[in-house]
């Protein structure tokens, strides 16, 4: 952790440190969903490189003061992919690794979907798709009225943009020229029932955001250097909201989960966990 020039806390991790953090988080995602025998490993594994880069490279926040008013906000709109966020919050020190064992357990801080009332470091109570971008817009408007430099970062899934309210928010955020609203689109190509292509084709996604008045950048969502560069690019966009459209692989890092719709919302068995951990470099 370091203190930035504005006096805010930014972790400032290197690319190799971020990659190692992502590997550790992938291990925790597999363990959490295995322990709970429920949850959403696929979308957690697709988002995790971006989350690690955001928290480790850019987000201004204080793990020991999670309610610090001038922190950047991060809103995980695809809140079912909570194991990924919990793993990152544990790595950053907002919660403990012991807390991860409470995922989906009665009374635990790690509720099934990320919840601001339960978990330190969570800025939004998610669980219903299509809501986080609007909430992030509210945070961005508040920052502007406060004349604060803080940003609101939001992550949505690609299936999630089938929700009409996403486009209400997209239009409104551009109308209000919210340069402090930053969106990551985790395009892993799979939604609950099937591949997105089969459920609802979304055609030219970058063109859609472009036409709504957003600054658009398309990246490989698993290349840490690309992700860090994209986050830095977002900082340069001041007069309109920015979206990074990340091409990702659902289940990335665990061979039998990769691009497999079955692991949108299914936990690994004992044998599958052992294989996953082996693939992630955990010695037996």
């Amino acid at each position: 952790m370091g203190i930035s020039s504005e006096g805010s806390i930014v972790a400032g991790m290197s690319i190799s440190e971020l990659e190692e953090m992502a590997r550790k988080c992938r291990i925790e995602i597999c363990k959490m969903t295995h322990r709970a025998q429920a949850g959403h490993p696929g979308g957690s594994l697709s988002e995790i490189d971006i989350l690690c880069a955001l928290y480790g490279h850019r987000l201004r926040a204080k793990p020991d003061d999670p309610d610090w008013n001038d922190r950047d906000r991060f809103i995980l709109s695809k809140g079912h992919a909570s194991p990924g966020m919990y793993a990152v919050l544990a790595e950053m020190g907002f919660i403990t690794h012991e807390d991860l064992k409470t995922y989906r357990v009665k009374g635990g801080v790690c509720q099934g979907h990320v919840d601001m009332k339960w978990c330190p470091g969570v800025d939004f109570s998610a669980g219903s798709l299509g809501m986080g971008l609007s909430f992030g817009m509210g945070c961005a408007v508040a920052a502007n009225i406060d004349q604060s430099e803080r940003n609101a970062y939001v992550m949505v899934g690609d299936g999630e943009i089938q929700e009409g309210s996403i486009w209400e928010a997209a239009m409104a955020a551009a109308h209000h020229e919210l340069g402090n609203l930053k969106l990551f689109l985790d395009c892993n190509g799979i939604q609950n029932d099937d591949f997105c292509e089969a459920q609802m084709r979304m055609f030219d996604i970058p063109a859609k955001w472009n036409s709504f008045g957003w600054a658009v950048k398309v990246i490989d969502g698993h290349n840490m250097s690309d992700i860090v560069d994209a986050i830095d690019w977002m900082d340069t966009v001041k007069d309109k909201p920015a979206v990074v459209i990340a091409q990702t692989v659902k289940g990335k890092g665990v061979s039998f989960m990769e691009n497999n719709p079955a692991f949108h919302g299914a936990a690994p068995s004992d044998e599958q966990l052992a294989q996953a951990l082996s693939e992630l470099g955990v010695s037996a």
């Binding site: 800025d123 939004f124 909430f135 817009m137 945070c139 408007v141 928010a169």
Partner: peptide
């Protein structure tokens, strides 16, 4: 729909 949640974001920010 957007309006209600913009309100929620503002409320969460004080």
């Amino acid at each position: 729909q957007n309006m209600l949640l913009v309100g929620a974001g503002l409320a969460s920010s004080g």
